[in-house]
Simulated scan of single mutants.
Amino acid sequence: MRGDAPIDLLSFDCFTEIKPELDRFNLSKALQGNTGGIFLTINQTAPIKKRILLFGDSYFQSCLKWLSHIFEEIIYLRSPYILPDVASSLSPDLILTGNAERYLVNTPNAENDVPFFINYIHSRFESRKLDEHTLSAFQNIFSGRNSISYLEWKETLRISHKKTLLNLENNHLLQLCENNNILIDRIRDTATSLEKTDMEEAYRLMSIAHKARPSGIFIRRKLQEYILLLNP
């Protein structure tokens, strides 16, 4: 196809008019290149409540936006073969593996290859580029599927989506924020997203965020800004 004109293809991003509120996390920002990449998607409204584990090249990575509409959890590792220790740790319901033909001529021997997670302990891995949400996601996903830590983290994701936040009463939401920095961040970010469409709701959520994190400079500044706008 080299030298041919580009081909315009009709594409769509979801299977219904209502897009699910997906949580996506990946470690690519901290890696040099794509070796060792891990991607995670969570869709708690998915019709199939299964955890899917994918090993393969970038083809699976490009499939995540489709598969995430179908399965509740998808974990993708860029690896030319299945990693039994990783699969055992993550306890998936289904494992898929695949590689493009161009990789099959030089597939490394799994018995001689370096351990997968060596990518995260050498100097080329820059963890400072990852935010708290991403670090927490992978810490909890690898903590065990039935662990208290994982179950509490997943519940935090559920209640932190905009639709849920708007339906929770102030006292309940404030109670959920106790020792939960990720939820406070989500409330703060949801408030700022409502600035132009619903200032009263933005003020309500930012007030809760301020009570939960009174030392937050950005939250305090935004709350003062909302007060002035609501009381000119």
Rank of each mutant, 00 (worst) to 15 (best):
Y203K: 03
E169N: 02
K163G: 12
C14E: 15
N231S: 12
L194I: 07
D113Y: 15
I42P: 02
L54V: 12
Y203C: 11
S68N: 04
F117G: 09
H133V: 13
F142W: 03
A87M: 07
Y120W: 12
P6N: 10
K49G: 06
G98T: 15
I18K: 10
L130W: 09
P92M: 10
I227P: 03
K211R: 07
P84V: 04
E126Y: 06
K65N: 09
A137K: 00
A46F: 05
T97A: 00
M1Q: 11
N170Q: 12
A212K: 13
N99E: 12
I208W: 14
I48F: 06
T107K: 15
A212I: 15
I148S: 04
N119G: 08
A137L: 00
G33M: 02
A30W: 08
L90D: 08
P47D: 09
F138C: 04
A191H: 01
E152A: 02
G36W: 05
L9D: 06
E195Y: 10
E200D: 13
N112T: 08
N106D: 10
L54T: 09
S91Q: 11
F39S: 14
T192Y: 08
K49V: 11
R24C: 13
N34V: 11
A191V: 02
R51H: 07
L31A: 13
L77S: 09
D23Q: 00
E132M: 01
N171W: 11
R124L: 09
T107Y: 03
Q44T: 01
E21F: 02
H161A: 04
L40P: 03
Y59E: 05
G33R: 04
Y150V: 04
T134S: 04
